[in-house]
């Protein structure tokens, strides 16, 4: 993949918010991920060339941040809050149901490539614990039964790109 003229216009707009190219690194990689689902070796190289930075610098950032993905992810990324208030209010039951229903553990993607399951740090939704996020959508007071209906509702729909 190489950036199209249209891509570059969008990237230039992102770049304009920052003092220099390096400062735009995370926003550029977030855009790449938004477009492709994850940051492939090739797109990391493209982003580095666009910014005029060593690819290793971007790699250092991509592997530092929790939510920049260097491996392909499923159509839906499920982020389960594993922090303290959710833990107290039933996180473990929700996690176990997700593992059981999807047949995968944290950091894994289902065989049909529909779902990736990740633990995530406190989502700032503690008054609605336990909570989880599917792509950009927040779910409140999730129960094990609720997990089933969430999976049913999102399977085959939309996704984490675009």
């Amino acid at each position: 993949m190489s950036f199209s003229a249209e891509d570059k216009t969008r990237l230039d707009e992102i770049r304009s918010h920052y003092h220099d190219a390096r400062a735009a690194s995370v926003s550029v990689m977030r855009w790449v991920q938004r477009t492709n689902g994850y940051i492939s070796d090739e797109s990391l190289q493209d982003a580095a060339e666009y910014l005029g930075l060593p690819a290793a610098d971007l790699e250092g950032l991509a592997t530092f941040y929790n939510l920049l993905f260097r491996k392909p992810v499923g159509n839906h990324v499920i982020k389960v809050c594993d922090s303290v208030s959710c833990w107290m209010c039933g996180y473990e039951r929700v996690r176990d149901r997700l593992r059981e229903r999807l047949g995968i553990g944290f950091g894994e993607t289902s065989e049909d490539r529909e779902f990736t399951l990740l633990p995530v740090v406190c989502l700032g939704n503690c008054d609605n614990a336990p909570t989880l996020m599917v792509n950009d959508h927040l779910y409140d007071r999730v129960t094990p039964e609720g997990v089933d209906s969430i999976l049913e509702a999102v399977r085959g729909h939309g996704g984490n790109r675009g």
Binding site: S25, V26, F64, Y65
Partner: peptide, 27 residues
């Protein structure tokens, strides 16, 4: 004034790590 969206690390809330993050350096 600009809004910057980070990519998720607790340490970025520490003000000097946050400044490194904004500069595009390892936070």
């Amino acid at each position: 004034l600009h809004a910057h969206i980070s990519a998720g690390r607790y340490i970025c809330g520490e003000e000097t790590a946050l400044m490194n993050a904004l500069e595009g350096r390892r936070p």
